[in-house]
Design a protein around this nucleic acid. Structure first.
Lengths: 221, 221
DNA sequence: ACCTGAACACCGTTCAAGT
DNA sequence: ACCTGAACACCGTTCAAGT
């Protein structure tokens, strides 16, 4: 059925969209430390130069890939319901994206001016507006929430509990708990105390608890 | 006067402390992208292998260097005054360190288990304790504040306004404002709105405003 | 035990040559 | 205009040989 197309051009033309799409796959599989460009030439059966014809450099590629992940999440989460509820949905949407694509967590911290971060700003700023917060107060509240979300994202992406299988995850947490229990109680009393709670630890629930703390603080503005 | 020492050993022995100290200088000057190890061999007049004898790898070196910057800030800021005031002092101390050593901003996001991050946890957790917050509530509140601080740190370190001279800084902000004013108003209404405020923007004050929003949220727990 | 530095490995980027 | 892929550049890491 696709014979016509197949004879007119043997393969889809390269485009930034196709490259970004392939890059997301590669990054999900190998992480951002792997040989991203080399893997792309294989997957797209092309040369490196062709990729550089559509993309300025690795930074540009990662920024575009992160935005391709984040932008749709933002528009999906942004509904016309309760602003606070929408903010929670936005935050959870970002959290879940980073859980699925850990490299996005690190990427968002790399440059505050990249499209993905601006889209997050837009989403959160719009809801603060809807809450009647404007001017400098909105700047401050927006920065607080955005920075909290990005900080949590980076820490979550870099943390243990990122192991693909649940068994590896709980094993990693157990190892960490043992490590922390052996720390000097004089220097690290709090961390040792946390070790006891690691087993029942739920990053996602804790992330949401943090969003609620900020929302409560914003209500006092 | 130091003749005796000079003749017994021609140069101080290498140690992790000396390497870390030199690394902080190198990182401050060249950033973490520069050829850190090569610069270290020059500064310490030694070979790369000697450095690897005291340090496992670049990650280990950066983690140790970040902790050498952060740990003293934490113990200086931690006094027995008002817990909320101490939390502000801790947060500002971290902010100012990252302002002085931008590479620390990125490093703290790289691994939640590194000593510098654990020290931050200790400092903040201790003050939350003093506020009477314990158990799971302290975990949640602590995670929220630590993640906010680390997120702000990373964004600040990666942002403009990091130019050494004030003139470069305001030039960078002006360029950014112009860029943002040209964004599509339909896609980026909030960011365009922020552009107008960029001139008077003070990252440090906004960071502190975020800490205060968080503290207000904590009071409602 | 500690140091030396050449060699290696890794991966992003360039560039001359092709269609 | 777009693609090809070998060559280059950069920088962390290893390792055989020294003291």
């Amino acid at each position: 059925m696709t014979v016509e197309r197949r004879t007119t051009r043997r393969r889809d033309a390269l485009s930034k969209e196709r490259i970004v799409e392939a890059a997301i796959d590669v990054l999900d599989t190998d992480g951002d430390r792997g040989q991203v460009f080399r893997a792309l030439t294989v997957r797209l059966s092309t040369g490196v130069g062709a990729i550089y014809h559509h993309v300025a450099n690795k930074n540009d590629l990662l920024a575009a890939a992160a935005d391709a992940v984040i932008a749709p999440v933002m528009s999906d989460a942004t509904t016309d319901g309760e602003p606070e509820e929408t903010i929670r949905a936005i935050a959870l949407g970002i959290f879940d994206s980073i859980d699925a694509h850990p490299w996005v967590g690190a990427q968002l911290s790399r440059d505050p001016r990249q499209p993905a971060v601006l889209h997050i700003w837009e989403g959160i700023g719009g809801q603060l507006n809807a809450l009647g917060i404007t001017g400098a107060a909105r700047s401050d509240a927006g920065a607080a929430l955005v920075n909290y979300v990005l900080g949590s994202a980076a820490q979550h992406a870099a943390g243990p509990g990122q192991a693909p299988r649940a068994a590896d995850r709980s094993a990693a947490l157990a190892t960490l708990a043992t490590e922390w229990e052996q720390l000097d109680p004089a220097e690290y009393p709090m961390v040792r105390d946390e070790a006891a709670r690691l087993g029942a630890h739920d990053d996602r629930a804790q992330f949401l608890a943090g969003v609620d703390i900020f929302l409560a603080g914003i209500r006092t503005l």
